[in-house]
Design a protein around this nucleic acid. Structure first.
Lengths: 337, 337
DNA sequence: ATGAAAGCGCTAACAG
DNA sequence: CTGTTAGCGCTTTCAT
């Protein structure tokens, strides 16, 4: 293995000069830098990650904890992970993958052994058991999602409340008076994952504000249950003309179910969703939707972490991404009297 | 930070004894081990990963390279990744996530800097440009999938040829005489990803062997194209009664399309697939299928790597997992004359 | 602008 | 069964 002293000898300089030429932490003359770079190239030198981590107390690795639980749309997690890795690489960092399963012990392990410099957590719950640990950990972290109290922590997420409102406003603007929310699976509410509740809050608030009649239906993610859900909606709200779907797995089957029940989308029923743009576009009837910006969340999360690692500037505790609604084919003006 | 010398002092032993107590690499008396463990607990000691990697030339980290390209079913990748992480943890290793995007330079980087001890690659192609690099790398690797020549490398995958055969045998056994294969998107064949070709080989060979009339149709993964595919199949093979689908995204839409064309599954048409069991079960008509065992592949890949890292036993260059076909509702005996 | 040298915290001979 | 000690390869004061 070729080491820094080999490079130094080959270039006729000291090891520290090679180190500084690499890190740019102190000025190097043009001539010296050139010689060092050439030596590095000729010898194929690669600094040893462990040695570097030991000497500098920086591993240049971030931990990413991904959720495994039911009710979470896999492609969203995947896209988020890819975006985290890609952005981390832009900052010369790598990403260690952990599963939620490892729990607090897993976080403590990678943090305390200095395997990673910082952590990114997804699927944060209102009273997440990891909150206390994160506050005491000597390493910075960013959470995707909001707990009940984000005091002293850094959180980022789509503004789900605003997203729920935005969908209702859109429907109200089209003249709809009776709306329903098809929500996440019940276990998501039971777990008190904040984002599900927030959609409900926004949905309800906007409906009330606009004088709409509204109802909320938590729903299983099983595509087979779409028909039952559709029937239930119509039974409970016969005058229903506007639907907001916050349940990826149910979106497409629900459209099918409505049409099978003789309701045209958007002719008889306008449907909006909160979901990845990709999904909204792929449905047979492209869905007007508020985007779930998983790639942007990943990028932003890493950027926040880099600022925290940079040390200087303090970062905001809470970052809410404003909802962007894209009109597609699934919504239209109310036609019935 | 509490270090090994602190623990040693606290326990009244030498640092090496603590190290050995931790690694089990030499016998420790019961009494000493107890004292060391207690000291570790009382002080909350965690060995520094970088220091350990430097001194032992083992980072206990595996690299996992995931594909991003079109035509690859995301949940399969995700399930594989989770299984790799979970299994790696059982062997006290962690997993670094890399994207295919980083290319050969990415592999070289993590290997040469000793950031990782070994690598797992997915989505291997027949003439994968990374093959040569893997052979020269000083670190072991395992590939999911088979290149044209696996000389000196370690590969594992489902036996796709046998899987194709198994599906045809099943249909032949039910009396079907005219069968079709709905394959992966054309770009997958163009890239020469081996598994797609192998399914075709197995499908064709088994059809010929059983005297069946057969045809192969590479197909886009766009759900919207299902109808067109279904019509094409029936136009080209009017007597068609058996279909093998090797295209995750098209499976469900295809079933819908057939039924819209007035063909009952399995009444008029028997459908089998090569896909994750989870998908096969979730379709409206549960599909008889050969499982794509991504979780098992992940586990086995890690186990192979661990054996290679262990040094002793040499591992097989090629591992083909035999196909397991599960009968579900989508296949039945041929009814037509 | 560059060098010398002292660690970073741990492992693994080598000794007993 | 346990202790002593020499590094592992790099970063970073401290000098100059």
């Amino acid at each position: 293995m070729v080491k820094i002293t080999d490079v130094a000898r080959h270039a006729g300089v000291s090891p520290s000069t090679v180190s500084y030429a690499l890190s740019g932490k102190r000025p190097i003359s043009e001539e010296t830098r050139r010689r060092v770079e050439e030596a590095i190239r000729e010898l194929g030198y690669r600094p040893h990650a462990g040695a570097r981590a030991l000497a500098s107390s920086r591993s240049k690795v971030l931990a990413l904890v991904i959720p495994l639980r039911a009710g979470i749309h896999i492609p969203v997690v995947m896209q988020f992970a890819v975006s985290v890795v890609t952005t981390a690489r832009r900052y010369d960092h790598d990403v260690l993958l952990l599963t939620q399963e490892e729990g607090e012990e897993g976080l403590r392990r990678v943090a305390d052994t200095a395997l990673v410099d910082a952590l990114i957590l997804m699927d944060v719950q209102l009273h997440d058991p990891r909150l206390h640990l994160l506050r005491t950990l000597e390493r910075p972290s960013v959470m995707i999602g909001f707990p009940a109290s984000s005091e002293g922590l850094t959180c980022i997420d789509l503004d789900f409340k605003a997203a729920g409102e935005r969908c209702v406003e859109h429907l109200a603007g089209l003249g709809h008076r009776v709306v329903a929310l098809v929500g996440s699976p019940p276990e998501v509410y039971v777990r008190q994952t904040a984002f599900a509740q927030r959609v409900v809050q926004g949905f309800t608030a906007a409906a009330d504000r606009n004088g709409l009649s509204s109802a909320v239906h938590p729903c299983e993610a099983a595509p087979g249950s779409a028909r039952a859900v559709a029937e239930r909606l119509l039974r409970e709200q016969p005058a229903l003309t506007g639907v907001v779907v916050h349940n990826e797995a149910l979106l497409e089957p629900l459209i099918d179910a409505f049409e099978q029940l003789g309701l045209r989308v958007p002719g008889d029923l306008s449907v909006t969703a909160i979901c990845p743009d990709e999904l909204a576009e792929s449905v047979r009837v492209p869905i007007t939707s508020v985007a779930l910006p998983s790639a942007e969340l990943g990028t932003r999360a890493v950027e926040l972490l880099m600022r925290k690692l940079g040390g200087g500037s303090s970062v905001p505790e809470a970052t809410l991404l404003p909802p962007r609604l894209t009109e597609r084919a699934s919504t239209g003006p109310r036609t019935a009297p």
